[in-house]
């Protein structure tokens, strides 16, 4: 155990010996990970490296076969309200009969708990979140009528409305246009400025140094984690992706 008190920043997320398997085949193997508070962190690694799986098991969506997760020193169940989650855009049915505003309102359900219904206060929070991501004019739009980038912003607004301390995002830049990508990264940077911890599954290695200040290399096992300026180098990229990545990253 690392003594947290000796550090200047507390640990927001701590993963201990986490192993996750699908049908007895491990997809994550003995992961130890500490994410300090206030970082904007990318999780990078090749396809099938278990990036989404790592996030999902931290959030209790998947059950690990071994290991434990703590959020600010306590189990996830007790710290739910500190955490917001943006799943992959493709994980839901966008033909579902509902509006943009209603999807964002879903972010308030966690604080409401069972049975209690959202009211004016929740609606106001949702509208403010929509305004922050620039989607206010689309509030009554049916969600299938939104472009990919707009749908991603709706998901982001839904996470913002949870007013959490830690944000987990699964490939928020997938299939969005350049304008939306910039809009999203600006919001993420604003979150970090406000002292929040943001953890993003990311695919585009080129933008890692520009967008993030912290990075975790993952390929079934954890390869490395730390500040981008210290560890985002050819050595770890090669260890994570295999031999050819040196070339492509310099292009």
């Amino acid at each position: 155990m690392i003594d947290i008190k000796n550090k200047t920043t507390p640990i927001a997320v701590k993963v201990d010996d986490l192993t996750v398997a699908y049908n007895y085949k491990p997809v994550l193997w003995d992961i130890d990970l500490e994410i300090p508070e206030g970082v904007l962190m990318a999780i990078v690694g090749p396809n099938g490296a278990g990036k989404s799986t790592l996030i999902k098991s931290i959030l209790g969506i998947l059950k690990p076969i071994a290991g434990s997760v703590s959020i600010y020193g306590k189990p996830y169940d007790k710290q739910r309200k500190l955490v917001a989650y943006v799943p992959q855009k493709g994980s839901v049915d966008w033909d579902f009969p509902t509006t943009a505003l209603d999807v964002v309102m879903m972010g308030t359900y966690g604080n409401l708990g069972w049975i209690k219904r959202p009211g004016q206060k929740q609606k106001k929070e949702a509208l403010e979140a929509l305004e922050k991501v620039g989607m206010l004019p689309f509030k009554n739009r049916q969600i299938s009528q939104l472009s990919g980038g707009q749908q991603q912003r709706i998901f982001l607004a839904r996470a913002l409305v949870q007013n959490a301390s830690i944000y987990f995002m699964d490939e928020p830049f997938q299939g969005v246009d350049a304008t939306t990508e910039i809009a999203i990264i600006n919001i993420l940077k604003a979150l970090r400025k406000a002292g929040k911890t943001v953890i993003v599954v990311h695919h585009d290695l080129q933008t890692v140094p520009e967008y993030f200040d912290w990075v975790t290399f993952l390929n079934v096992k954890k390869i490395a984690t730390g500040p981008v300026k210290d560890i985002f180098n050819d050595d770890y990229l090669t260890k994570t992706y295999g031999i050819n990545y040196k070339v492509s990253i310099h292009k």
Binding site: L59, D77, Y109, G110, I115
Partner: peptide, 21 residues
């Protein structure tokens, strides 16, 4: 009683799970 829970878990089971429903 459970309209909102039904809605969120039908639309996005992952979110429902992470919210504790």
């Amino acid at each position: 009683a459970f309209f909102k829970e039904l809605k969120v878990s039908t639309f996005d089971a992952g979110l429902a799970a992470s919210l504790g429903f």
